[in-house]
Design a protein around this nucleic acid. Sequence first.
DNA 1: GATATAATTGAAAATGATTTTCAATAGAAG
DNA 2: CTTCTATTGAAAATCATTTTCAATTATATC
Lengths: 139, 139
Amino acid sequence: MVEKWLEQLRKNGYRLTEARQAVIQVIVKSNYALTPFQVYEAARAQYPALGLVSVYRTLEKLEELKLIRRVHQDCGCNAYLPQAEGHQHLIICQKCGLACYFEGDDLEDLFTKVGADHGYEVTGHWLQLFGTCAECEQK
Amino acid sequence: MVEKWLEQLRKNGYRLTEARQAVIQVIVKSNYALTPFQVYEAARAQYPALGLVSVYRTLEKLEELKLIRRVHQDCGCNAYLPQAEGHQHLIICQKCGLACYFEGDDLEDLFTKVGADHGYEVTGHWLQLFGTCAECEQK
DNA sequence: GATATAATTGAAAATGATTTTCAATAGAAG
DNA sequence: CTTCTATTGAAAATCATTTTCAATTATATC
Ligand SMILES: [Mn+2]
Ligand SMILES: [Mn+2]
Ligand SMILES: [Zn+2]
Ligand SMILES: [Zn+2]
């Protein structure tokens, strides 16, 4: 997975630097939406010279390449998760933040109709579920 | 509508000041999500002495009282709309920003099931449609 | 492997949005 | 009208993010 992301960077003319590899390594397999600062802290364990600025710059490029996506929550909209394949939506645990994607919601037709009823041509939708994950539930 | 909001403020022990009335008057009937600064500019037409700080403070209270809600979009998450009655969702025009609520999506059961399949107890969801409104469409 | 070149870096400064501080003002209650 | 305190706007402070810039380093070429 790290390899795929690095390949994407290389393919787009970006250099494979230590800073970028440290950032990628932190976010590529995360099940939790991470803020730039959280990425910074975690990545510095592997590469202490890393600057927060480079985290911002790397996240920007990863988002551009659709490898990560910004996650919106009540508590803030500046955290990132790996982007899912195809058309998927998120479920996020309100207690611990554990995130997971699901697909097959098949709601396009419904949304197109709802929109039409209100005079809109629907071109996209945002859907996110909130709840409690199995682990947090049993506590 | 303005009266209802003022009554809500009064009922909760807040004073009915000129600053608050100017802010309310701008946002209470808006079909467009407005940023604090946009509210500030519009409200100053009615009450020129208004300070931006008071806009922030008033929006905070109106959100607390669930009279307005924050709207999330790709371009930013710091704009506000009047809150709809009951359980409704938004459709927003990507061209002009015209917002409108719809209800009756009846998806609770589907979401509960999807969540359960992934080990989550679903407690809420967040749905927003994007598209082109009738007026922008015909241009 | 050495060299040239431009992309990338981290530190520091700048920016922009929001929050806090504070003395002055003005609602509300008597 | 007077008292009391919530609220105000201006200015300062804070916080996240972006820009600037000289030094470094990844990559292509020799
Ligand atoms: Mn969908
Ligand atoms: Mn719903
Ligand atoms: Zn958001
Ligand atoms: Zn959890």
